[in-house]
Design a binder for these strands. Structure first.
Length: 768
DNA sequence: GCGCTCTGCTTACCT
DNA sequence: ACAGGTAAGCAGAGCGCC
């Protein structure tokens, strides 16, 4: 069975449907790095659940699929024209019969996807990521005086530079002052065709460069002939979510458009390694910048152009090289998914992981000409999730972490959980094949030199398999997919909860103390510290169901547990912060510093130092002796000023930072997804960071300091917490006597209720 | 009219 | 169109109090 069966395609880099000739065109990059073109005729199809939907006036053939599932009538058309009219009719019958739910009673994908699905083939077979011919594209635009951004509609705001860099080592820099804008655009097209690239990439290419280029080319009346068949760049009116806003989709016949910005954003959702998604900052933060270069403000580009600065050319060239570096970093996982799925490279980037798992099951069914379930038919009610609990708040030493390897996929395979509709057992079969492939890849990683190219490629392969494997669980709980089934989803999480509870029980029976549990992992301490990693994982894994493997996942010197999913770990003097309480991007510098210093003092048992640090910080706030970074925060702009003002009128929805910029003449400077940096000044007012003059509101920041100290509530007894985190002078002698108290709710005299009173501020009544 | 608490919404995080 | 679980900030509504 799929996915790694016979593949009649070899080294195919692109496949397109030529609507005029109604043929599929396949582009193969042969071993001499030359493109070979082949045309293939194929039929078109869609699937419906009742013959009522089969159109009357079109020419088509109905194939009845086998099995008892509802989507059983495959409408097969000889020509694209017949397909379009049959589809149109079926949809209009469907709307009459099912109303809004019409699309749940059909299965339909684009001609190319349906072709890949029916033929059981994929792109990129027997190719490696570096064998694709890739060009990074970057334009610099002129911004006329008085504006913050270039506007493609303004004749003055022309494209002044185009920079191209490809992965065969070639770079091009096209200068408008030499070529003219029209000449520059024509030259870009010529270079792309001459070098016959498979992939056009760029940073925010879809959100900025391509729309800009399209408008300028239209105004200059230049056709953007970028396609392999010399067809023009196509823009689909249907917009799709692109980051926060909607953007059109662009297509070049025979090539893939890959924008590194959305790839970077999704990469960072799990990694949380970046402060922003600017190209320059990203390549530096990721350590993949091709070369050092001088940094200057984007706003200066036009001024540099006017003064003919040579630096600008450097900058433009470096931008394309950076884009290419970012592409090389982010794209391999996408490449290997494209090898496995009936999607083009470009579609693969734009498709969610649940849909990918769903598609892989649908392909398994259609390969057996089997009928399909209705879309979204098996999702009922609310789902249950993983189990989470902070079982022992406070400070701990000598901590072990153990977790279950691939918990949800293992449960699916061990307990044979699958969608109720999956009569062919494709779900476990595909999951098993993917899991085995991943284990093979992980095994071969150990035999490869870690710096080599093969290592990176194999790592990307196993990583893309991991993503696909994990999405099989997510698929079940998603409405709007064909094989979703919330009952199966709940079965999996229920088993997961039982397994986790059994692990807790195992630790407690060994007289260990469980600190934090979350879904598939457990932090705990054990009475003896001499145990080996293997012995500990065996202890935790006792009496677990077969097929469930527990891994030892590390030892930590200290752990401070504050709340579920919110804790600190210390290992070899390295502080690891978990949870929004300790590592949110919105923490003030003041709070970050406090967390780091506090842990440092606690490790050293330096209560006096901690008390002194708190007093000193409070004193500096009162004296307004603060660093810029300590007191600045930001709001991400998620609506246009027009939308904000509209919302203000209709619903009265206020936002103080947006109010701050609303009346400013330079308010257009803040675009969607940009940040408004501000701080709290006197009288509860907020002010823009750019107007910072140390005129902070001490009461706001003192409260912030106190709230941050509250995150360390469970370190001391309530009384001692009050004495340490206080502005009242505490002699060093007294402070030294206060030892961190390793608070455990069930064993220590203080109750959570007493700590709550500390937060509310009425605990001191008992003290004095 | 002021200040407090409650609630709903949103964001940012964890596995 | 992958899931659910958690903390916490913000702004508005509702309320009691003076």
């Amino acid at each position: 069975m799929w996915p790694f069966t016979e593949n009649r395609f070899d080294r195919v880099v692109a496949i397109e449907h030529d609507e005029q000739r109604d043929q599929f065109v396949q582009y193969k990059r042969n071993s001499q790095d030359i493109i070979e073109e082949t045309s293939i005729s194929s039929k078109h199809f869609f699937i419906v659940d009742t013959l009522d939907l089969c159109p009357l006036g079109s020419s088509y053939l109905v194939v009845e699929l086998v099995g008892e599932l509802p989507l059983r009538y495959l409408v097969l058309c000889d020509s694209y024209r017949d397909y379009l009219s049959a589809l149109r009719e079926a949809k209009s019958y469907g709307r009459a019969k099912y109303g809004e739910a019409m699309s749940d009673h059909m299965w339909q994908r684009s001609p190319v996807e349906a072709f890949l699905m029916r033929s059981g083939t994929t792109l990129f077979t027997n190719l490696q990521p570096h064998e694709l011919k890739v060009v990074a594209l970057d334009f610099e635009m002129y911004t006329s005086a008085g504006k913050h951004f270039a506007a493609s509609s303004d004749p003055m705001d022309k494209i002044i530079l185009a920079s191209l860099a490809d992965n065969r080592g070639q770079t091009y820099l096209l200068d408008e002052s030499l070529l003219g804008e029209a000449g520059l655009i024509k030259e870009v097209c010529r270079l792309i065709n001459q070098n016959d690239y498979d992939v056009i990439c760029g940073h925010n290419l879809v959100g900025f460069d391509l729309p800009y280029l399209t408008t300028r080319a239209q105004q200059l009346n230049i056709p953007l002939c970028l396609g392999r068949n010399r067809s023009v760049l196509k823009q689909r009116a249907i917009t799709r979510r692109y980051g926060l806003r909607e953007a059109p989709e662009f297509f070049v016949f025979g090539r893939h458009i890959i924008d590194t910005l959305p790839l970077l954003i999704s990469w960072d959702i799990t990694k949380r390694a970046l402060e922003n998604y600017r190209l320059k900052d990203a390549v530096i933060a990721l350590g993949i910048s091709p070369r050092d270069r001088r940094d200057f403000d984007r706003g200066d580009i036009s001024q540099m152009w006017d003064s003919k600065a040579a630096d600008l050319l450097d900058y433009a060239q470096a931008d394309a090289l950076d884009s290419l570096a970012l592409y090389s970093f982010l794209s391999p996982a996408l490449f290997f998914q494209t090898q496995m799925l009936p999607l083009t490279y470009q579609q693969c980037a734009a498709t969610g992981t649940g849909t990918k798992a769903d598609l892989s099951l649908i392909r398994a069914y259609l390969q057996k000409t089997h009928s399909l379930p209705l879309r979204g038919a098996h999702v009922l009610g609310e789902g249950r999730g993983g189990l989470t609990e902070a079982k022992s708040l406070g400070w701990h030493q000598d901590i072990h972490k153990a977790d279950v390897a691939s918990l949800y996929p293992s449960i699916c395979l061990s307990f044979n959980i699958k969608p109720r509709t999956d009569v062919l057992n494709a779900f476990p079969a595909v999951l098993k094949v993917l899991t085995e492939r991943r284990l093979e890849a992980k095994a071969s990683l150990k035999t490869l030199p870690p710096d080599g190219y093969e290592f990176k490629a194999t790592d990307a392969l196993q990583n893309s398999l991991k993503i696909l494997i994990n999405s099989f669980y997510g698929m079940l709980g998603t409405s709007g997919l064909y094989f979703s089934d919330s009952e199966a989803s709940n079965d999996i999480t229920t088993r997961g909860q039982e397994i986790l509870l059994k692990m807790v029980d195992n630790v407690e029976r060994a007289h260990g103390k469980v600190i934090e549990i979350d879904t598939d992992g457990i932090y705990f301490t054990l009475p003896e510290s001499t145990k080996t990693a293997h012995a500990i994982s065996c202890l935790v894994a006792e009496e677990l169901p077969p097929g469930i493997r527990v891994d030892y996942d590390g030892h930590y010197d200290y752990m401070y547990s504050y709340a579920p999913k919110n804790y600190l770990l210390v290992k070899n003097d390295l502080l690891i912060r978990k949870g929004v309480v300790f590592r949110s991007r919105r923490l003030f510098g003041l709070q970050n510093d406090f967390i780091v210093v506090c842990v440092d003092k606690l490790i050293r048992g330096d209560s006096a130092g901690l008390a002194a640090y708190y007093r000193q910080t409070a004193r500096r706030i009162r004296a307004r002796e603060v660093e810029f970074d300590s007191v600045i925060t930001y709001l991400v702009v998620d609506q246009t000023m027009a939308e904000y003002e509209e919302g203000l009128m209709t619903q009265g929805q206020r936002s103080r930072p947006l109010d701050l910029i609303a009346s400013r003449p330079d308010r257009d400077k803040w675009t969607l997804r940009s940040k408004i940096y501000y701080y709290h000044a006197g009288n509860g007012e907020i002010k823009l960071a750019e107007d910072f003059a140390k005129d902070i509101d001490p009461s706001y920041y003192l409260e912030l300091l106190r709230k941050t100290a509250e995150k360390f509530l469970y370190i001391f007894s309530p009384q001692d917490w009050y004495r340490i985190f206080s502005e009242t002078p505490l002699s060093d002698e007294e402070a030294r006597l206060i030892r961190p108290w390793f608070f455990v709710p069930r064993q220590m005299p203080a109750t959570l209720a007493e700590y709550e009173r500390v937060i509310k501020g009425d605990f001191q009544l008992r003290l004095f």
